[in-house]
């Protein structure tokens, strides 16, 4: 992460490192228990690493495909490109690719393993609901995710949680086939299996909770950093208010189109750093808005 004099919230940074430290502690405990029971964990770790590597290198394409998003050229979306050009120049970032997903749900997200290979995607729903300045504030938030390399950080943090999940799975199979008895302590197989299994579950739950906490801090950090790029925290606050709650639920797609298509619209699972997610990977909007209002007082003098 490149350090910048402005736009860095030290309290958040410290808390982030604390969470990462706790994560490491949990993993260490986990590995120790596995070691004690003689599980070939290196083998599992290699498989997990390959899968994670694939996810890491293909994440942008996977996410865009799952959203049905299309990368747009400056000719196709001149206003959006102009906005991002301005913001990138101000933030000193290479310009990411821009994509538009044709869906009514208001959302925006950034993905990609590094700033050079990033994509910022917005839905048609968010463009319809927000004023230009609010959209700019949202884009500033997403660009900060890219600048802070949040996709990489969260992917790394997910590594061990995934490993734990895989192990849990394979242990269940081993238990079913009764092949666990070849451990170090003969005759202790079933009890040992239970212990490892329970510990694995525990590790999986706790590590995911910590990842969510980490993710929430990164959201605050992106709100903060994005506000410094645009200089308009109050616009981000009003954008967040608009795309959450009642207004987001009111559709903008024509009744006749919906009736005619008769389509079942399934909300896809979102990955990457979307501005608004159902799970608690994002802090409550109210809290974010409060923080932004405070920040607005400082830098906008409102």
């Amino acid at each position: 992460m490149r350090e910048r004099a402005t736009g860095r919230d030290w309290e958040l940074t410290v808390r982030m490192f604390l969470v990462m430290f706790l994560l490491a502690l949990v993993y260490f405990f986990f590995v120790t228990v596995l070691w004690a029971f003689g599980v070939p964990w290196i083998f599992l770790a290699i498989i997990a690493a390959i899968m994670l590597g694939l996810q890491y290198f293909l994440s942008d394409k996977l996410v865009l495909r799952s959203m049905g998003a299309k990368v747009v050229s400056p000719q196709e979306a001149p206003e959006l490109h102009a906005m991002v050009d301005r913001l990138c120049a101000r933030a000193g970032l290479p310009k990411p690719k821009l994509a538009i997903a044709n869906m009514d749900i208001p959302n925006a997200f950034a993905t990609g393993r590094n700033p050079k290979n990033s994509v910022v995607c917005v839905t048609t729903g968010i463009m319809r609901r927000l004023e230009p300045q609010e959209l700019e504030a949202v884009l500033g938030h997403e660009l900060t995710h890219i600048k802070n390399r949040d996709v990489t950080i969260i992917t790394m943090a997910s590594f061990f949680a995934m490993l734990a999940a895989m192990l849990m799975n394979s242990l269940m199979w081993m238990g079913l086939l009764g092949g666990f008895g070849r451990g170090r302590r003969e005759g202790n197989g079933m009890a040992g299996l239970m212990v490892v299994y329970l510990v694995t579950v525990l590790v999986w739950i706790v590590s995911n909770l910590l990842i969510l906490a980490l993710s929430r801090y990164r959201e605050y950090a992106a709100d903060w950093g994005g506000s410094f790029i645009t200089g308009m925290p109050s616009r981000l606050a009003s954008a967040l208010t608009k795309i959450s709650g009642a207004i987001a639920r009111i559709p903008t797609e024509d009744l006749r189109k919906v009736e005619g298509a008769n389509a079942f619209f399934i909300v896809p699972a979102l990955k990457g750093n979307s501005i608004m997610e159902l799970l608690s990977s994002h802090p409550p909007v109210q809290k974010r808005v409060e923080r932004l209002r405070r920040l607005a007082k400082q830098i906008e003098g409102i």
């Binding site: 009642a246 639920r249 009111i250 559709p251 903008t252 797609e253 024509d254 009744l255 006749r256 919906v258």
Partner: peptide, 9 residues
């Protein structure tokens, strides 16, 4: 259900 407030453009 606000989700059903479909517009007619």
């Amino acid at each position: 259900a606000l989700e059903r407030w479909y517009p007619l453009w």
